[in-house]
Write a protein that binds this DNA or RNA. Structure first.
Lengths: 156, 156
DNA sequence: TATTTTTTAGAATTAAATTTGGTAATTAAA
DNA sequence: TTTAATTACCAAATTTAATTCTAAAAAATA
């Protein structure tokens, strides 16, 4: 199986990132092929892992998640398995939807969703600050999000 | 139209966030209704905006996007339309996929995708640092991402 | 309790996905 | 350069799913 993608494949990737539920018929028309080879290309992109999954995007505000933040966390590296301890705890906290290991002053950057400030205080007091290996953390509260592309920047 | 969601609606939201391409038939079996009312509920969730859109998730690494970073930006507020100038520039830079207005030392947090370090240097030198209202910025390079939920944390 | 409204299931219809078989184009080998 | 092999494609047929429709059941209201 050749893993080289041509322009048509990139176009398929773009269209499916834009609309994950586009019908195969429409997709085939957009890319200028008939339905059969279009479907075959999509299946190949799925099988080879270029397309990982499909997801519905929901309106968090409407669902009552009024508070979104990023938290920069610095760890205390006195134990030798500090990072694993931290990651295990993070995985138990459902309000944390993203966890990135980053360079810079902070060790980790977390993304958090909660309903309101009270819930945020509880998260901080009862969960984040109780993780033994956490040294310091700083909240960046998201006031607004002006750009959130569902598409990664590709050449084609 | 009542905007009250019941447990079945929340289950639909969860299942569609997990798998945006689940068939209506399967979805109906999962939630324990027949296909017709299941479809009607999904359409209502779409029409009322609880479901905003559907997207394919691609493998950025495989597509050659080896560098992912967050950039914290501080603006220079000497002009009175500083923020709008900044946002207009950000919208022109395709490598920036997210832009959040945040509290804390930084004014904005950007998420960036590029192919390699050379491309990152070009982004910084030719684009970010040339935005007139940018005072300072700091890169947090993402070394690994250990959690990235496609599902927002809901009660039900 | 009677009436209205809403929600649902099941059947019928429509549309889409998938498979199949054959052809053209490309690539590899002689 | 010719031939063989592979790959990609299209069109049509088939299968499967989505959608619509009708009537019954459940829930809400009077």
């Amino acid at each position: 199986m050749a893993t080289e993608l041509d322009k048509i494949d990139f176009k398929i990737l773009r269209l499916l990132q834009e609309n994950g539920r586009i019908t195969n018929l429409l997709l085939s028309q957009e890319i200028g092929l008939s339905p059969a080879p279009t479907l075959e290309r999509v299946r190949k992109l799925e099988m080879s892992g270029f397309i990982k999954s499909y997801h519905a995007l929901v309106d968090e505000e409407k669902l009552g998640l009024g508070i979104k933040t990023f938290i920069q966390v610095q760890l205390d590296f006195h134990k030798n398995n500090t990072i694993q301890i931290f990651l295990d705890e993070v995985n138990l906290i459902k309000e944390i939807t993203e966890c990135h290991h980053v360079t810079g002053q902070a060790d980790f950057l977390l993304k958090v969703y909660v309903s309101d400030i009270k819930a945020y205080e509880r998260l901080i007091m009862d969960k984040i600050s109780k993780i033994s290996v956490v040294k310091t953390f700083q909240t960046m509260m998201i006031m607004s999000t002006t750009k959130k592309e569902p598409i990664v920047p590709l050449e084609y």
